[in-house]
């Protein structure tokens, strides 16, 4: 039996305790990283991307728009602004928000950096939906 550690996903709208898990993969700002039990204490910023949670053979995927991973001996806390489980993502909503973001990026008066950010988030949600 592989070693396990505690995982909590904390967002402004909810705090979920996922219990003991064996492996976590999260998107840092410059690439994916994986965590097993017994990881060094650290604090890592997360970017837009996919969080993969493994507990033995049970695997779940989450879409996130960025935040922080606080890794401690007793477990990991993910402080993220959004975390949507792949099965909870609303396909239609994700598609409309992608469309809205793309329209906005064509409008030169809008803040381009903001528009690019929303496109990335919407695409990310759609990708994870198909997991």
């Amino acid at each position: 039996m592989a070693k396990t550690f505690q995982l909590e996903i904390i967002t402004p709208e909810s705090a979920q305790n996922l219990g003991q898990i064996t492996y976590l993969r999260a998107p840092s700002i410059d690439g994916l990283f994986g965590i097993l039990a017994g990881h060094a204490i650290s604090m890592i910023a997360l970017g837009v991307g996919e969080i993969k949670v493994e507990n033995g053979n049970e695997i779940s995927y989450w879409a996130t728009s960025g935040g922080y991973a606080d890794i401690r001996p007793e477990g990991v806390q993910l402080l993220v602004e959004t975390a949507e489980k792949s099965s909870d993502i609303d396909k239609e909503r994700a598609q409309t928000s992608l469309k809205r973001a793309e329209d906005r990026s064509k409008n030169s008066e809008m803040d381009q950096a903001r528009a690019r950010g929303s496109i990335a988030r919407a695409k990310n949600r759609l990708n994870i939906l198909n997991r």
Binding site: I41, S42, M43, A45, G67
Partner: peptide, 27 residues
């Protein structure tokens, strides 16, 4: 005095933390 690994640097972290802190205030 917690000995932690920070990624990216502490400055970068704080810079990104503060806007998020503001967002939660607005919330």
């Amino acid at each position: 005095n917690i000995d932690r690994i920070y990624e990216p640097s502490k400055e970068e972290l704080v810079k990104s933390l503060i806007p998020r802190h503001l967002n939660i205030q607005v919330w």
